[in-house]
Design a protein around this nucleic acid. Structure first.
Lengths: 190, 190
DNA sequence: CCCTTAACTGAATTATTATTCACCTAAGTT
DNA sequence: AACTTAGGTGAATAATAATTCAGTTAAGGG
């Protein structure tokens, strides 16, 4: 028996991400995905039961990769601001470097593909970010506001600038990233 | 001859917005739009040549309404911070109250529907916001950063929180809005 | 080297959805 | 009131795209 080729899943995911960035979730077809991945249409159905499952799996994969990356190089024993900047920068850079994934995730929330189960799972993954924000407030660095307000402000300071940098083809250099961080920090600061 | 019924365009737009928010651009069908609008399928084709034109028109309409609203009650002769807060609050409230429109606009950028012409037009509409940011920097209120960085930071402080407030069903009350504004202002502040 | 089995293929089939159209209805015009 | 014309209808048609499947290929086991 011929074994499955794990590379093919990557090819399919890659092709799908590219197409979604180009044309949005509304624009993808299984036939195009297969062509773009260099496979026959039928092959896609060996790896995924149907389009729905493909999109759900891809979404989950993206979400997981993104969340797993947030705390890379984070050292809780270092001063708070140092650690916070590490996480903030991870988020910004990951989103910049994986823009296609970001587009997919943004589009998925309102889509007929993503089921409630997938949605619920992704919520659970964000718990560590909440903890980080709470630490900042408890140690007196942040304003005394509810965690969600602080968190959404932080996320907004990343997501929207990344989106714009991408569309205006003005990559964020380290100086720009530093400025953006300073704005975020000053905004959160007590 | 029977005249066209302008209300029908509104019904169609309304139905489309509702469906896009529910299921995303990928989920809408002309048949459903018609049913939701209380019309026959064919009627939709009297008002719009096809689905593509419908989505483009709706997108343009939303964008225009949104931009026109930004400067409501803005008085350039008042102190800068006062005026800036008016615009910032207009943006946040308009986006909150017209959340369906916001979802559509977000989804449209990557979609097979919106053509380049429509995209270009919307860019031109944002010029006044640039001017406002530049005034803030020139009068010494804002950090000495490029306009785009300041602008995207400002937009991020609105878009993402609005999105989250909506999904978590925690409407932003005036206190929360004030806190959000303070964070944005502190972030931009020199 | 042959056999078995599962992957792989892409044309055929099926399902879904956009669009049309023959017929109907109602508003203006004479 | 009869006529004309454009709007309105929804079933029928056409287009598009998802999914299947009969045939083909290739890997591992004996």
């Amino acid at each position: 028996m011929k074994p499955r080729d794990d590379k093919k899943v990557d090819q399919i995911f890659g092709a799908t991400l590219g197409l979604v960035k180009q044309k949005g979730l509304a624009g993808i077809t299984m036939c195009e995905i297969a062509r773009e991945a260099g496979l026959a249409t039928g092959t896609v159905y060996i790896y995924f039961k149907n389009k729905d499952e493909l999109v759900n799996m891809l979404f989950s994969e993206c979400r997981k990769a993104s969340v797993e990356n947030y705390f890379t190089n984070y050292d809780a024993s270092k001063p708070f601001k140092t650690g916070f900047k590490v996480v903030w920068t991870n988020m910004l850079k990951f989103r910049t470097e994986n823009f296609e994934e970001a587009v997919l995730m943004d589009q998925c929330y309102h889509s007929p593909f993503i089921n409630d189960c997938t949605k619920k799972l992704t919520k659970e993954l964000t718990a560590p970010i909440y903890k980080l924000i709470e630490r900042g407030r408890e140690e007196g660095f942040f304003k005394n506001l509810d965690t969600l307000s602080l968190l959404t402000f932080m996320m907004g300071s990343i997501h929207y600038p990344v989106k714009h940098a991408h569309y205006n083809r003005t990559p964020l250099n380290d100086t720009a990233i530093d400025s953006m961080f300073t704005m975020c920090w000053d905004g959160l600061k007590a």
